[in-house]
Simulated assay, not measured.
Amino acid sequence: MIVTELNVYPLKSCGGTALREAEITPRGIRHDRELMLVTPEGAHLSQREVPRMALLRPVYDGDKLRVEPPDPAAQVPLTHEVRRDRPARDITLFKAPDRGVDQGEEAAGWFSTALGVPCRLVSFPDDHVRRVGWADAVGESGYADSLPLLVTSEESLAELNTRLAEPVPMTRFRPNIVVSGWREPFEEDGVRWLRIGEVEVELVKPCGRCVIVNVDQATGVKGREPLRTLAGFRTVMTDRPRVVFGKTGFPRTPGTIRVGDPVVLLG
């Protein structure tokens, strides 16, 4: 088994960046979901409400954010130096209280124009710790929906695509790490511990999928698949019935992982 893809999503619910290697921190891939768009009142925004967010492709190095607009003829790219010296404001993530550093009027105006909805850009405060967990597993995360790492497999996607009239790419599922070489599709369901390169990962929770998987990440258009087909054979009971694809977890050791690294089952 090997790693075939690595992806980081610095701006939550927007386009991802493919990596050849990734630095793994306690919060997952460095800079993953470190920035987020919120309503003027502070509620987080996602492709659930604004599918057009898929068209925003951020590049972020921890200091400077650059985003190409969905319509280059109507808007220039955004280049923004992320400010950390401002006081954090109260925001909500899935209605739970959280904190974010507002990035000011210029960034807010650019994103509001690009998406056609009023919004503001916030960054994860340097001194903020967001604790997340599932059952007996607890750790840290940035602004990820749930746990900080999402692992999927090429075998699982291939099995799903045999059931679809039109195959979908892995981008629909927005994984951090894609693995190839499972013996069976969805083998990740029963795996708890992996070693990927020099990093140990604890996989603890099936990833419940929502309507975002129905958004074409290249066009920002929402359809009915693959969620409808997934629901027919991948609905499981966790805390409630969930349609699942992939598994989320925590990095338990820091380090660097690379495309092509071996993946070893530890349990």
Results as ranks from 00 to 15, higher is better:
D261R: 04
T248P: 01
A43F: 06
R192K: 13
Y9I: 02
N161L: 06
A165W: 02
G197I: 08
D102G: 10
C210Y: 08
W193A: 08
R33V: 01
P72T: 12
R30Q: 14
E49C: 13
I177H: 00
R252A: 10
P226W: 11
L150D: 01
K95L: 11
L93Q: 09
P148D: 05
V213Q: 03
E154T: 15
C210T: 10
G104V: 09
G197D: 11
R89K: 15
D126A: 12
F94D: 14
R192E: 12
I24E: 07
R174E: 04
E188S: 05
R131Q: 14
P175Q: 06
K12I: 03
E198T: 15
T39A: 09
S112N: 12
T171G: 02
R20C: 01
D216G: 07
R240P: 05
L157K: 08
P118M: 09
Q103L: 11
G142P: 00
W134R: 13
L56C: 07
V76M: 13
E34F: 08
L45R: 09
P118F: 09
H44A: 05
D126I: 07
G142N: 10
K222S: 15
G246L: 01
L65E: 04
A135R: 15
D145W: 04
E49M: 13
T238L: 15
V221T: 13
V67S: 14
R172M: 04
G116L: 13
C207L: 02
P26S: 14
E198N: 13
T253S: 15
T235I: 07
R224E: 13
V168Q: 05
L115Y: 06
L115C: 09
L164E: 09
V59H: 14
R27F: 01
V59T: 15
L164D: 11
L19Q: 11
R86I: 05
Y9D: 00
L230N: 12
G16C: 04
V132N: 08
E140G: 13
L37S: 15
C14L: 03
G260I: 06
L147T: 01
G181I: 11
A144L: 02
L149G: 01
G232P: 01
R48T: 11
D136M: 04
A96C: 11
L265N: 13
V8L: 03
G190S: 15
S46K: 09
G109M: 03
T248Y: 01
D145H: 06
L19Y: 08
H44R: 07
N161V: 10
E202T: 01
T92K: 07
R172A: 02
E41S: 15
R242N: 12
G133C: 11
K222I: 10
S153C: 08
S156T: 02
T152W: 00
R192N: 08
L121D: 02
V38E: 08
R33Q: 04
R195P: 04
D126T: 13
T238D: 10
R252N: 06
R86H: 12
L147C: 06
F250I: 07
E225G: 01
G223L: 02
M237C: 03
T79A: 10
A54I: 06
L37C: 10
K222V: 12
V204R: 05
D71H: 10
N7C: 14
S123K: 03
V191R: 08
V117C: 09
L266Y: 02
L266A: 09
V129I: 14
P72R: 10
Q103F: 03
T253L: 00
